[in-house]
Amino acid sequence: MDVTVSELMELFLQSPLVTWGSVKTFGSFGSSNQDNLSLYMDLVDGILLNQIMLQIDPRPTNQRINRHVNNDVNLRIQNLTILLRSIKTYYQEVLQQLIVMNLPNVLMIGKDPLSGKSMEEMKKALLLLLGCAVQCERKEEFIERIKQLDIETQAGIVAHIQEVEILRCCQ
Protein backbone atom coordinates (compact mmCIF):
# COMPACT_ATOMS: atom_id res chain seq x y z
CA MET A 1 0.00 0.00 0.00
CA ASP A 2 1.56 3.30 -1.10
CA VAL A 3 1.12 6.28 1.17
CA THR A 4 0.96 9.75 -0.34
CA VAL A 5 3.08 12.65 0.89
CA SER A 6 -0.02 14.42 2.18
CA GLU A 7 -1.01 11.33 4.18
CA LEU A 8 2.53 11.06 5.61
CA MET A 9 2.46 14.74 6.47
CA GLU A 10 -0.92 14.43 8.19
CA LEU A 11 0.32 11.49 10.27
CA PHE A 12 3.49 13.40 11.14
CA LEU A 13 1.56 16.53 12.19
CA GLN A 14 -0.75 14.43 14.39
CA SER A 15 2.13 12.70 16.17
CA PRO A 16 2.72 13.36 19.88
CA LEU A 17 6.13 14.89 19.12
CA VAL A 18 4.66 17.53 16.84
CA THR A 19 1.81 18.16 19.26
CA TRP A 20 4.39 18.69 22.00
CA GLY A 21 6.56 21.01 19.92
CA SER A 22 3.65 23.06 18.68
CA VAL A 23 0.66 25.18 19.53
CA LYS A 24 -0.59 23.26 22.55
CA THR A 25 2.73 23.41 24.33
CA PHE A 26 4.36 26.56 23.06
CA GLY A 27 1.41 28.52 21.67
CA SER A 28 3.20 29.70 18.57
CA PHE A 29 2.57 27.12 15.89
CA GLY A 30 0.27 28.05 13.05
CA SER A 31 -3.32 29.09 13.15
CA SER A 32 -6.44 26.97 13.05
CA ASN A 33 -7.15 27.89 9.43
CA GLN A 34 -3.68 26.93 8.17
CA ASP A 35 -3.45 23.89 5.91
CA ASN A 36 -1.19 20.93 6.72
CA LEU A 37 1.45 21.95 4.17
CA SER A 38 1.80 25.43 5.68
CA LEU A 39 1.95 24.00 9.19
CA TYR A 40 4.60 21.50 8.19
CA MET A 41 6.69 24.09 6.34
CA ASP A 42 6.56 26.31 9.45
CA LEU A 43 8.22 23.46 11.31
CA VAL A 44 10.87 22.58 8.73
CA ASP A 45 11.87 26.22 8.27
CA GLY A 46 13.44 25.95 11.73
CA ILE A 47 12.18 29.26 13.08
CA LEU A 48 9.74 27.82 15.62
CA LEU A 49 12.14 25.07 16.72
CA ASN A 50 14.90 27.62 17.31
CA GLN A 51 12.45 29.71 19.37
CA ILE A 52 11.69 26.64 21.49
CA MET A 53 15.41 25.96 21.93
CA LEU A 54 15.87 29.57 23.06
CA GLN A 55 13.25 28.98 25.77
CA ILE A 56 15.18 25.89 26.86
CA ASP A 57 18.59 27.54 26.69
CA PRO A 58 18.42 31.35 26.77
CA ARG A 59 22.20 31.78 26.80
CA PRO A 60 23.20 34.35 24.22
CA THR A 61 24.24 33.04 20.85
CA ASN A 62 25.84 34.90 18.01
CA GLN A 63 23.84 32.90 15.48
CA ARG A 64 21.07 34.77 13.68
CA ILE A 65 17.92 32.91 12.74
CA ASN A 66 16.49 33.75 9.32
CA ARG A 67 12.91 34.79 10.09
CA HIS A 68 11.76 35.02 6.46
CA VAL A 69 12.71 31.73 4.84
CA ASN A 70 10.07 31.93 2.07
CA ASN A 71 10.89 28.40 0.90
CA ASP A 72 14.58 29.26 0.40
CA VAL A 73 16.51 25.99 0.72
CA ASN A 74 19.72 27.64 1.94
CA LEU A 75 17.98 29.67 4.65
CA ARG A 76 16.09 26.58 5.83
CA ILE A 77 19.33 24.58 6.03
CA GLN A 78 21.03 27.44 7.86
CA ASN A 79 18.22 27.66 10.45
CA LEU A 80 18.23 23.89 11.00
CA THR A 81 22.04 23.85 11.29
CA ILE A 82 21.84 26.55 13.97
CA LEU A 83 19.19 24.50 15.78
CA LEU A 84 21.28 21.31 15.74
CA ARG A 85 24.40 23.15 16.83
CA SER A 86 22.44 24.64 19.77
CA ILE A 87 21.02 21.25 20.73
CA LYS A 88 24.40 19.52 20.52
CA THR A 89 26.08 22.28 22.54
CA TYR A 90 23.35 22.12 25.18
CA TYR A 91 23.69 18.34 25.57
CA GLN A 92 27.48 18.59 25.83
CA GLU A 93 28.02 21.77 27.86
CA VAL A 94 24.95 21.96 30.09
CA LEU A 95 23.69 18.40 30.44
CA GLN A 96 27.17 16.84 30.20
CA GLN A 97 25.78 14.18 27.87
CA LEU A 98 26.88 12.78 24.57
CA ILE A 99 24.35 12.20 21.80
CA VAL A 100 24.96 8.71 20.46
CA MET A 101 22.33 8.72 17.71
CA ASN A 102 22.92 9.98 14.18
CA LEU A 103 22.00 13.65 14.10
CA PRO A 104 19.20 14.75 11.79
CA ASN A 105 20.26 15.30 8.20
CA VAL A 106 19.57 19.01 7.69
CA LEU A 107 20.58 18.86 4.02
CA MET A 108 17.90 16.26 3.34
CA ILE A 109 15.26 18.24 5.23
CA GLY A 110 16.30 21.49 3.58
CA LYS A 111 16.43 20.21 0.02
CA ASP A 112 13.49 17.80 0.06
CA PRO A 113 11.29 18.63 3.06
CA LEU A 114 8.24 16.81 1.71
CA SER A 115 9.77 13.34 1.63
CA GLY A 116 9.10 10.59 4.13
CA LYS A 117 12.83 10.46 4.92
CA SER A 118 12.84 14.18 5.76
CA MET A 119 9.90 13.67 8.09
CA GLU A 120 11.90 10.96 9.86
CA GLU A 121 14.81 13.40 10.16
CA MET A 122 12.45 16.03 11.60
CA LYS A 123 11.31 13.45 14.14
CA LYS A 124 14.94 13.09 15.26
CA ALA A 125 15.25 16.86 15.68
CA LEU A 126 12.05 16.97 17.73
CA LEU A 127 13.23 14.03 19.86
CA LEU A 128 16.49 15.80 20.67
CA LEU A 129 14.63 19.02 21.44
CA LEU A 130 12.25 17.16 23.75
CA GLY A 131 15.26 15.64 25.51
CA CYS A 132 16.63 19.12 26.16
CA ALA A 133 13.27 20.40 27.41
CA VAL A 134 12.66 17.67 29.98
CA GLN A 135 16.17 18.04 31.41
CA CYS A 136 16.61 21.81 31.43
CA GLU A 137 16.25 24.19 34.38
CA ARG A 138 12.67 24.94 33.34
CA LYS A 139 11.74 21.24 33.02
CA GLU A 140 8.88 21.51 35.54
CA GLU A 141 7.25 24.16 33.36
CA PHE A 142 7.65 22.05 30.21
CA ILE A 143 6.38 18.93 31.96
CA GLU A 144 3.39 20.87 33.25
CA ARG A 145 2.57 21.87 29.67
CA ILE A 146 2.75 18.22 28.65
CA LYS A 147 0.30 17.36 31.43
CA GLN A 148 -2.22 19.74 29.81
CA LEU A 149 -2.36 17.52 26.71
CA ASP A 150 -4.76 14.60 26.30
CA ILE A 151 -3.80 11.29 27.92
CA GLU A 152 -2.99 9.53 24.64
CA THR A 153 -0.61 12.31 23.59
CA GLN A 154 0.99 12.33 27.05
CA ALA A 155 1.61 8.58 26.78
CA GLY A 156 3.21 9.06 23.35
CA ILE A 157 5.46 11.82 24.69
CA VAL A 158 6.51 9.65 27.66
CA ALA A 159 7.47 6.91 25.19
CA HIS A 160 9.51 9.46 23.23
CA ILE A 161 11.23 10.66 26.42
CA GLN A 162 12.23 7.07 27.13
CA GLU A 163 13.48 6.80 23.54
CA VAL A 164 15.64 9.90 24.04
CA GLU A 165 17.15 8.41 27.19
CA ILE A 166 18.33 5.43 25.16
CA LEU A 167 19.86 7.69 22.48
CA ARG A 168 22.28 9.51 24.75
CA CYS A 169 24.82 8.61 27.37
CA CYS A 170 26.50 10.45 30.20
CA GLN A 171 30.13 11.48 29.97
Results as ranks from 00 to 15, higher is better:
residue 6 S to I: 07
residue 104 P to E: 03
residue 155 A to C: 09
residue 83 L to Q: 02
residue 93 E to Q: 15
residue 20 W to Y: 15
residue 69 V to F: 06
residue 139 K to H: 11
residue 154 Q to H: 11
residue 146 I to P: 02
residue 5 V to L: 00
residue 123 K to C: 03
residue 36 N to I: 10
residue 28 S to T: 13
residue 140 E to H: 04
residue 158 V to W: 15
residue 154 Q to V: 06
residue 92 Q to P: 00
residue 67 R to F: 12
residue 151 I to L: 14
residue 47 I to L: 14
residue 81 T to R: 03
residue 156 G to Y: 11
residue 30 G to H: 05
residue 59 R to H: 12
residue 114 L to C: 07
residue 82 I to Q: 01
residue 35 D to V: 11
residue 103 L to K: 05
residue 139 K to F: 06
residue 32 S to F: 12
residue 121 E to P: 06
residue 111 K to F: 07
residue 45 D to I: 04
residue 67 R to G: 05
residue 14 Q to A: 08
residue 60 P to I: 12
residue 33 N to W: 14
residue 10 E to I: 02
residue 171 Q to V: 13
residue 171 Q to A: 09
residue 120 E to Y: 06
residue 43 L to Q: 08
residue 4 T to A: 07
residue 157 I to L: 06
residue 20 W to V: 05
residue 97 Q to T: 05
residue 70 N to R: 13
residue 129 L to W: 00
residue 100 V to W: 05
residue 63 Q to P: 00
residue 128 L to A: 01
residue 20 W to M: 04
residue 159 A to H: 12
residue 95 L to F: 04
residue 107 L to I: 03
residue 88 K to W: 08
residue 152 E to D: 14
residue 52 I to V: 15
residue 90 Y to K: 04
residue 111 K to D: 03
residue 87 I to N: 03
residue 122 M to G: 01
residue 137 E to G: 02
residue 19 T to R: 07
residue 60 P to L: 14
residue 24 K to A: 12
residue 70 N to Y: 14
residue 152 E to T: 12
residue 60 P to T: 11
residue 5 V to D: 06
residue 169 C to E: 09
residue 103 L to E: 08
residue 121 E to Q: 14
residue 6 S to M: 06
residue 109 I to L: 02
residue 111 K to Y: 06
residue 4 T to K: 08
residue 13 L to D: 03
residue 101 M to K: 07
residue 81 T to Q: 04
residue 145 R to N: 13
residue 120 E to H: 08
residue 78 Q to S: 15
residue 167 L to V: 00
residue 160 H to I: 04
residue 102 N to A: 08
residue 170 C to Y: 15
residue 52 I to P: 02
residue 161 I to P: 07
residue 89 T to M: 12
residue 169 C to F: 12
residue 33 N to P: 01
residue 98 L to D: 11
